[in-house]
Design a protein around this nucleic acid. Structure first.
Lengths: 349, 349
DNA sequence: CGTGACTGTCGAAGCGTTTCGACGAAGCGT
DNA sequence: ACGCTTCGTCGAAACGCTTCGACAGTCACG
């Protein structure tokens, strides 16, 4: 491994000149810079990140904290891609730290060991002690998602209310008047998981404004519970012709259950996924019509917010609330009139 | 941030003594060690990882290289959990680097910048230039998966042949004589993606030995193509009563298609997943009976292999080929005799 | 009681960068 | 032709830790 000293000798200049030439920290004549660059190239010089970090008190690394439990969805992969790209543009490298949500101690440690200059935190709850802890210990951070209190915190988030409202609107335009919302678990709502709360509340609001008969059904993230949930929906309101599904795993079960009941999608019932990852929609037939999270864009934005926060300069004004993107599938159609209540009754029992 | 100098002053000993006391690098009297530890505790001392890394020429970090495309499955999450755990036991922290498979240049750079002492690489192909490149540039690494040539490389892998054979055996024991293998895409096979090749070849071998009529069907990783594949299977051999499914996404479609054809699982057809992640089996009803990858265990083993490789000491002897673990679901039953050829014919057209 | 082998501790020299202050050499206006 | 900036470069001091060599004490042994 060649060091800067080697480069300096090779180029016939001093150590500091090499540093200035390579980083552009101070003006250097074109001739000298060329010499230095040639020498560095020739020796295959790679700056030692540790030494650089030690001297400059910054590591050039941004960390994305991700709970290692329960896999990571295509959406998260999108965040990562976007964040990595944008971090690279700004001269940072992005790493992922696999920590459980409540492991803020470890995050704190690693940051204070200078293994990262700032962190991006995902899966944020409305009231999140992790965030409080990070803030208190002075770790620069940005959230994907947001806490209830936002005072000066850096964040980006999906616009759940708008997305759910758009989904309800699309169904309404097709003549649906009885619509159900297939939510994540009731537990996630009670724990004040931001997306759950905001989407459920947004749905209630949207249906009220649009004078649509709405119901919310909670389900675990599994196909099995999706089947059960579908039964619950039809039992509660047999006139239901549209489903807005945020719980994509349950949605798969719901579609399967419709098939079992000889109800067709979208002939008898329309389903639209909201805040879903594109990949999961491939797991139903027909492919789910959906409003997907603009994950890469959000990842990029999160890095921008973080960098502004680290610089402690006032944030540049840019969007941080992202509406979902409409992606057509085959699961939406006009409402059946009159609702096939009889057929359903027949198959339900 | 307190430094070691502060701790030394507080404890009334020299800098080096603090280092020895905290790291156990040299014998230190119990009294002194206690003093130092108390001082460190009182000041909330955290060693600066960069300085430590710079001085000792090791960073204390292991990196898991993971392609950020296409999400990451519950299986990968398992690798990460296991690897993290075992890394922590050995005094390393584990980070994830989101790099495309062919980005070995970046891996090389980061390692030579001393941002990690070694890397674990996943998703290895039988002939993999990435691995060649890593080896050539002297980066200590271990593979989850394995190349064709293994000369002295560190690896752990799933025992595909054994797992597929076990699945075939389970079906055979239930009386199934016509069994299909639902594989990943033909492209992955042609590109010599290790798991695809080993599983397909293993299936051919197993059916031959067991005198079972076997067929291999390739499918893309989507439910839609799984439906198509199911049709292809029944067209090619209407007597098929068992399916060994390695392609879990396609398996979901296949199950759905069976439902559409009024064929029941496991009444008419049995399906067993092999080398699957537990999570996906929740996406079918009935839940898929499966042989799952012992992901956490493999993650742990990979770290052990890597650490041996870094130390350049001969590897301790331990298993590195892991059979899958049987997890009962509801998708296996005795073979129907005689096969319901007629029913099938009726619904197929 | 001297000798050698440990023990426990210290001081200092790195590790490979960044960055501050200094200092000649030009270039400018007057 | 004179001082005054500005430009380009250098030397040296950090950054916070590890680790080598040295050196007093201790202890057991013959």
């Amino acid at each position: 491994m060649a060091t800067m000293k080697d480069v300096a000798r090779e180029a016939g200049v001093s150590l500091s000149t090499v540093s200035y030439a390579l980083n552009g920290t101070r003006p250097i004549s074109t001739a000298t810079r060329a010499k230095v660059e040639r020498a560095a190239e020739k020796l295959g010089f790679r700056p030692n990140a540790l030494a650089r970090g030690l001297a400059s008190a910054k590591s050039g690394v941004l960390a994305l904290v991700l709970p290692p439990e329960g896999g990571f969805t295509a959406t998260m992969a999108g965040f990562v891609r976007g964040a990595r790209e944008s971090a690279a543009d700004e001269g940072f490298s992005l790493v992922i730290w696999p920590f459980a949500p409540d492991d803020h101690q470890r995050v704190h440690d690693l940051v204070h060991q200078r293994l990262a200059d700032g962190v991006i935190v995902m899966e944020v709850y409305l009231d999140d002690q992790r965030i409080d802890a990070l803030e208190e210990s002075g770790v620069p951070f940005a959230m994907i998602g947001r806490t209830r209190e936002l005072a000066n915190r850096a964040w980006v988030d999906t616009d759940f209310a708008a997305s759910v409202d758009e989904a309800v609107g699309l169904l309404a335009d097709l003549g649906h008047t009885h619509v159900a919302f297939l939510s994540h678990s009731e537990r996630s709502y009670q724990l004040q998981y931001g997306p759950s709360v905001r989407a459920v509340d947004g749905f209630a609001d949207s249906t009220r404004r649009r004078a649509i008969v709405g119901q919310v059904v909670f389900a675990e993230d599994s196909a099995g519970d999706g089947r059960r949930a579908l039964g619950a929906i039809l039992d509660a309101d047999p006139a239901t012709t549209g489903i807005v599904a945020m719980n994509e795993f349950a949605a798969i079960g719901a579609v399967a259950e419709l098939g079992r009941r000889h109800l067709s999608v979208p002939g008898d019932l329309s389903i639209i996924g909201v805040v879903t990852s594109p990949q999961v929609s491939l797991l139903t037939v027909p492919e789910l019509t959906r409003l997907s999270i603009p994950a890469e864009e959000m990842g990029r934005a999160a890095v921008a917010e973080l960098i502004d926060a680290m610089a402690a300069k006032p944030r540049r004004d840019r969007p941080r609330l992202f509406p979902c993107v409409y992606e057509p599938g085959g699961s939406m159609g006009p409402a059946t009139t009159p609702p096939l209540t009889t057929t359903r009754k027949g198959t339900t029992c």
